[in-house]
Structure formats: structure tokens, C-alpha cells
Design a protein around this nucleic acid. Sequence first.
DNA 1: CCCAGGTCATAGGCACCGACTATGACGGTG
DNA 2: CACCGTCATAGTCGGTGCCTATGACCTGGG
Lengths: 312, 312
Amino acid sequence: MPLPPWISDLPALDLLLSVAETGSVGRAAQAHGITQPSASARINRLERRLGVPLLVRSRRGSLLTPAGEAVVAWTHGVVDAAQALADGVLTLRADRQARLRIAASLTVAEYLLPAWLLTLRRSHPDLDISAGVANSADVCVAVRTGAADLGFVESPDVPADLSARVVGEDRLALVVAAAYPLAARASSGLRLRDVVNQPLLLREPGSGTRDTFLLAVENALGAAPHLPHATSLGSTTTIMATVRAGGGVGVISARAAATAVAARELVELAVTDLDARRPLHAVWLGRTPTGPAAELLTAALGGPTGAAAETG
Amino acid sequence: MPLPPWISDLPALDLLLSVAETGSVGRAAQAHGITQPSASARINRLERRLGVPLLVRSRRGSLLTPAGEAVVAWTHGVVDAAQALADGVLTLRADRQARLRIAASLTVAEYLLPAWLLTLRRSHPDLDISAGVANSADVCVAVRTGAADLGFVESPDVPADLSARVVGEDRLALVVAAAYPLAARASSGLRLRDVVNQPLLLREPGSGTRDTFLLAVENALGAAPHLPHATSLGSTTTIMATVRAGGGVGVISARAAATAVAARELVELAVTDLDARRPLHAVWLGRTPTGPAAELLTAALGGPTGAAAETG
DNA sequence: CCCAGGTCATAGGCACCGACTATGACGGTG
DNA sequence: CACCGTCATAGTCGGTGCCTATGACCTGGG
């Protein structure tokens, strides 16, 4: 289900926000470094494509119509998300020598890091930050070799040569399509053995998500797990797509599933005898960090879960 | 502060999501109705522009790199917001005869209606819905003339010839820039008389926001308000831009201010002797609505505030 | 009363970008 | 060994978006 073609012009949406702010097409054009006729034409095209009158042009500037105000409000959501994406991509770029280098596993990078970075950027607007995304083992390597000043991992345990601190918690969710047979019993006390014979959709070997799940199953059953119908898929997105198509039981971070579950697209299975929680750790080498790394750590600790130290 | 130019290609981001879902550039191309070489080139361009390797191409398809997964996660936010925008714009179009016609005032249209429509669309995927945005008085006119089946207003009171029901509550917020003199006393019990002599930034005459504020001031002071330095601005966006620039005290919906306040860009003034709350009403003509309108009403009542009926 | 300064719109020219078709390179599979 | 599916490359063409230059029109000051 692709996006409709008449919504494709992101710069025009951005430009519209500036018009709304400044009250003038010309000033908005100036703010975006283009000429007034270009901006005028672009806004016109946008208006024509959306099929909604957005502006009331007058000789003293341009004002939003009521419908225009609603469009601007929704557009804010789009542009803000795009700004977050741009911000994140900037930290992922390798072509710069950053003063603060972070390595994070996926769940942290997706759901927690953006907020922490926002906090950090407020106090140090021009601090050069880089972030790498890797699985938990590689994050530890990056920290150990000094390639990263601070790391964030989602694995159950941390190597003994690194210092660590809990900065949050994650939970694995077992999800199925709403039409999947098991969905009817989703909240009525399923047991683990009802699930292990289903076609399970896991992340690839080596990922923290898979390891956490296998460990949790082993803890629950008291033996090495035997999963006859487990499939390995390369990414969370692929797993969710397969689950949506009725392809089995997906094992993903509860945070990744949250949106789809809230929208009733997927159903989370409550398994009574499985503890699928896992701590999220910040890890670093040597003594407690100082400078920007320390501030990021503070921001992380100020988040959802303040937690006890376990340096060692 | 415009968006960076290397983030401008929204269809490419959408395409990337499909690649992540399907695991193949070709299949993603098919899903978007373009040819495989076009999709390949477009993804390549995106990758080059972002400066981050996103895919690992193999002869059996394309898989996401770890960084790619993070980018996809952030991209999801952008595309979802764009989808919400597209959805909203569809309801605003006038060039179609809808089976359910709604008229809403701005605050409701911005912050509440999208969620209700989502609920409604889930049970009636192909119901044709149209929504108009207007000030509260015009919404009542539309409902009275039958131009709308259901209306939502944010004015303190409702005309006696319409039936109404409270579906939520809104609050006006007085906001200033963080550097504004008054900001220091923001939470230390300001009184209304400390504020009325400030340069006040209000919506234009006839808007529910302005009327609500003037009424609240009148109730608090026991007399018709005298506001020596009040300015009328055309839209909420303009007010917030002026406030940010230190232009005075903005009077806007607390919902509109929430993001900026949370980000510490603006500061809300706590005024102890001003009750700036106002109910949000659903309004309709005649007996309790049936059909789609009734379902939308149910969705609205199921929201943040369930409320007592006050039909009449 | 008229002119200056501001607004937005229109016209013509030009470069770039993105899509299409056709083809090639490569690996896994029957 | 031949076939199918994957992605990449080459060449062409149309559309789109930008620029400069100009016009039309209010508003406000002299």
C-alpha cells in the first residue's frame, strides 16, 4: 500500500510550514533559499495536488484557510518525523570525526536514542555526534577497542571487562495476525508448549532478540529448546510483514510491535510461563565516563527507568 | 530552519519500506507500480544522498544493514505521518459526495478527529467520509442547514436548537518564549492582572479560542475585559512563531502548545485566577444520530473523556 | 492625490532528474 | 547444463522545478 502520489513533495510541505509561520510566500521562499516565484509555484502545485485550498492570498501576505490550518497541523507531524530521521542519519554518517561516538543495538537506536540525543543537543547544539548500529556483540567490540565512547546493548548479560549500567527494559512480544487461529486464545493464558510447535519467526542467529528468546525458553522449559518450525528472517520489518500475512508467530521487541498491536493489526500472545523481559545496558570501558558521554548517560538514566549501578 | 535537501524524496523512503518488507527491490518496485530499474536507481540515489549504506544486495534479494534497519524505523515515522496527512486531506476534499459529512473546529480536527476516523475506518473501510474545518459558529450553521451530519465545536456554549454532547475538554494555555521576562515567574502563581498588560497575541475575532479567552477573563475580573496591548493574528502557527521571537504572551490551545512546551521551546504561564478550560461538544440536528454518524459519536465518547448527555 | 514599497502571479528559457525499454552479469536450482 | 530470478548498466525522452524579468494590485506615507 504505497503512499498516494499527490503527497510526494516533502520540500513543498516544509515550505508550507514556513509560509504559515511567516505569513508570506516571499519570506518563506527567502528562508528556504529559493526565489519567490518558485515558492509561489510550488505552493500552488501543492494546493492543486491536494485538492484543498490552503491559503488566502492578499496584498499584505498569505493567510491560512481553516482547512489549511488542519493541513499544516498534520504536516507538522510529517516534517517533525523527517527532522528526526535527518538527525538520526547525521549520526550514522561515517565521514566525520565526531567528539562523541556511540554504538547502539537496534532497539535502543530505534526507540530510545533519538530522545536522549535531543536532550543532549539542547545543551550542546554543535557537538558532533556519531552513532553506529550493530548487534550487541559488535557494540561491545566497538566499546572495547575504543571505536565508541559509549555503547548500548540489549543482551541479557554484559562482558566482565566492561562497565555497565541498566538504562531501561525491553520485552519480547509474541505476535500473530488478527485472523491467525491462536489469536482467539491470545489473552487466555497460553502456555509455552502451545507455542513452540507453531511456525516461529525469529531474527537471524547472533541477534540479541533471538538469543534472548532462546534463553528465556530454555529457562522456562529447563532444557535446551527444540523449536521444530523456527524460521530465521533478516529484519524486524520482514518478520512483521510475514506475521501480517499469517505466516506464523513473530518474536520481536514489544516496542516494535506496539503500533501494530494498538491498531489491532497484530495480536500479542500472553504466554504465562515465559519471562521475556530483558534489561537494556549502557556499557563503557574503564572509569565512569566524563564530558558529553556522561551527559548522554545522564539523559539515558533520566528516562523511563532510573536504575541501580552495577559497575564491574 | 528548512529540512536538509537530502531527505526530500518521500516516495523513495516509501519505496525503501517496501524493500524492507518484501526483501527484494523488484517486488517493491512492483508494489509501487514502477519498473525494477527505476526502483533500483531510486534506492541507490537515496543511499548515496543519505551517505549511509542501507542494503546488502545479493542474488537472492536485498537485506537491510543494521544502519538500514535504524533508518527504516525512523522512516516508518515519516511515512506513517504522511499517511495520516493523506487520510486527513482525503476527508477535506470537496469534490465528492460523501455518505458521512463532518464539520469540525480546528482543535478537534487537529488532535482528536484523526484517531476517531481511524477507529471508524477500521469497521467501515470503504465508507466515504468528508470533513470540513471551520470556526465553531460556522460548524453550527453547517449542522443546522444539513450540510453536515455531525459537528464538533470548541465554544463554551451550544445553540439551543442543536443537540449536543461533551466529547472532551480543551484548555487554553498562555505561553511565552523561554527567554521572555515573565518566564521566570511562570509557575510561581501569576495573577491575571500581571498578564493583561502584556502584549497579548490572540486569534482573530470570531474564533472560538479568542471568544473563550475573553469570556474567561470577563468571568475572572467580573467586568468586560480591557486589553490594551492585544494583537490579533491569523493562525495558531503565526502566534507560536511570534511568541518564539519574544513578541509577547500567546493564547492558544494547550494541545497546540504541548510539543513546544515539552521541548522547552516555550514556557506555559500558570495563572491562578483564570479558568481557561472549555468543553468540546459534538453537535447534531434532531434525534440521536444513527448509522455511521452514531459510530463516530461512539468513537468520540470512547476517547479520553466519557461524558454525560445533555441533549436539548 | 499620487508615488513608493510591499505583496503575489505570469512568461520564457534551461538544466536536471526520474522513468521507461533493452540488455548484461551473476548465482542458485532443477 | 539450462533456466529462472536477482540486481545493475546504458541510452532515450518527457516532465518538472528553478531562475530572471516583468506585470498587476493593495496599502500607506508624503
